[in-house]
């Protein structure tokens, strides 16, 4: 990753911007059952292998700043939500994500199915994903 950032830096104009958009390292995806006036948290998805990749990305961005390639221009976090109509769509959703894919923690999927059965009419499954943008400026 450091090498890729350096290579991009070589082709950036002085003052040019390097932008990294990626999943947030600490705020991992969460799953909840929602309906108007109702929100029941189910689980936080886990992905240990991917979290290692995210740590490496954070370290690489820090390193190219420390090495003087770039100056830090800022970072900002955001989130977005995906709504699913029923639990069976969770499998499809997870399969859309490039490996290594997140998964439910032990018992999480069973909890989703169990609590879905008692959810109010019109309930949906809400997946909240978090992202972070880091912007560096080429020296």
């Amino acid at each position: 990753m450091v090498h890729a950032l350096q290579r991009a830096g070589r082709r950036l104009s002085p003052g040019g911007m390097l932008i990294s958009l990626r999943p947030h390292r600490r705020w991992r995806p969460t799953v909840a059952i929602t309906a108007p006036g109702y929100r029941l948290p189910i689980a936080r998805l886990v992905n240990p292998a991917f979290e290692g990749n995210l740590r490496s990305a954070d370290s690489a961005l820090d390193r190219v700043v420390d090495e003087g390639w770039f100056t830090a221009a800022g970072t900002r976090s955001s989130r977005y939500r995906i709504f699913l109509q029923r639990p069976s769509q969770m499998r499809t959703y997870l399969e859309l994500i490039n490996p290594p894919r997140p998964r439910f923690p032990p018992g999480g999927r069973a909890r989703l199915f169990a609590l879905w059965n008692s959810a109010p009419p019109g309930a949906r499954i809400e997946v909240t994903e978090y992202l972070v943008i880091t912007v560096l400026r080429r020296r």
């Binding site: 991009a8 082709r11 950036l12 040019g16 390097l18 990294s20 958009l21 990626r22 990305a57």
Partner: peptide, 13 residues
Amino acid sequence: GARFDVALFSWSL
């Protein structure tokens, strides 16, 4: 080669 104004790493680690 030609210079860029912005390098965007979009969801790539």
